[in-house]
């Protein structure tokens, strides 16, 4: 785990240095502030991620276990159940907002959500007993470095770190556990104009892989276009 973390940090650093080199090469050719009018400043993203990590975080490697209740006689008369099918939101759903502070640096936040719903059946009658659910909601402030900034394509890396809530509902009793949440995006690409598509590869609460759609709010650009057209 530590090795993955070190490699991730190294990759981010290399990408950041690369971004700087590219910028300095371009600076001499174009106006330093040209990006403010030519590149989008505000961005919204809706994405779906692979939920393997979340499932592992919530459920770990454990299984339903009655073996510990020998010294809990008040549990002896509870229904004995087994878990049936598990329903999920299938993907880890994420919503992000980002603001471009300078050409290569964005700041913003991610909100992610995923839910797992387990149906339990009576061990002896096989009738449905109850449904337990685990839902993971996170809020993570985010920094993104975009190291290739073209009109239609942007390449970027980023890191988010924030807070996550695991909402565990068991037999209608709800228990909320608060924990740290993170997302390291090793590589991300987005392509499009106002509307764009994106794909990311990384590690964290958004998922190993994330794909989705986004929208740029280029207010300054639009005003500029309007003035020029007038």
């Amino acid at each position: 785990m530590r090795t993955i973390g070190v490699l991730g940090a190294l990759l981010l650093f290399v990408e950041f240095v690369g971004a700087q080199t590219l910028d300095s090469a371009q600076v001499s050719a174009i106006d330093k502030n040209f990006w403010k009018t030519s590149l989008p400043r505000h961005e919204l993203q809706w994405g779906v991620g692979c939920p393997l990590l979340e499932e592992f975080i919530i459920y770990g490697m454990g299984s339903d276990d009655l073996s510990g209740d020998f010294d809990r006689p008040h549990n002896w008369f509870d229904k004995e159940v087994y878990r049936g099918s598990r329903g999920t939101t299938l993907f880890n759903w994420s919503f992000s907002y980002l603001y471009r502070v300078c050409k290569f640096l964005w700041v913003g936040a991610d909100v992610t959500y995923i839910g797992f719903y387990d149906v339990y059946y009576d061990k002896f009658t096989h009738q449905k007993a109850y449904i337990n659910s685990d839902q993971l909601l996170t809020f993570m402030p985010k920094i993104r470095f975009s190291y290739l900034n073209r009109k239609y394509v942007t390449l970027y890396s980023g890191i988010s770190c924030g807070i996550g809530w695991v909402i565990h509902s068991e037999k209608k009793e709800v228990n909320v556990v608060t924990n740290w949440a993170f997302q390291a995006t090793a590589f991300g690409v987005k392509a499009g104009t106002s509307w764009f598509g994106f794909a990311e590869v990384g590690l964290g609460y958004k998922g190993f892989g994330v794909i989705g759609l986004g929208y740029h709010f280029n207010r300054q650009n639009r005003q500029l276009f309007k003035r020029n057209s007038l």
Partner: peptide, 23 residues
């Protein structure tokens, strides 16, 4: 990967007589 993650679950390994053994 997403579908596999959604379907992945631990097998119910609790033996039928677990509670009897606990008692």
């Amino acid at each position: 990967l997403c579908v596999l993650a959604g379907c992945w679950r631990q097998e119910d390994t609790v033996p039928d007589t677990q509670r009897g053994y606990n008692i």
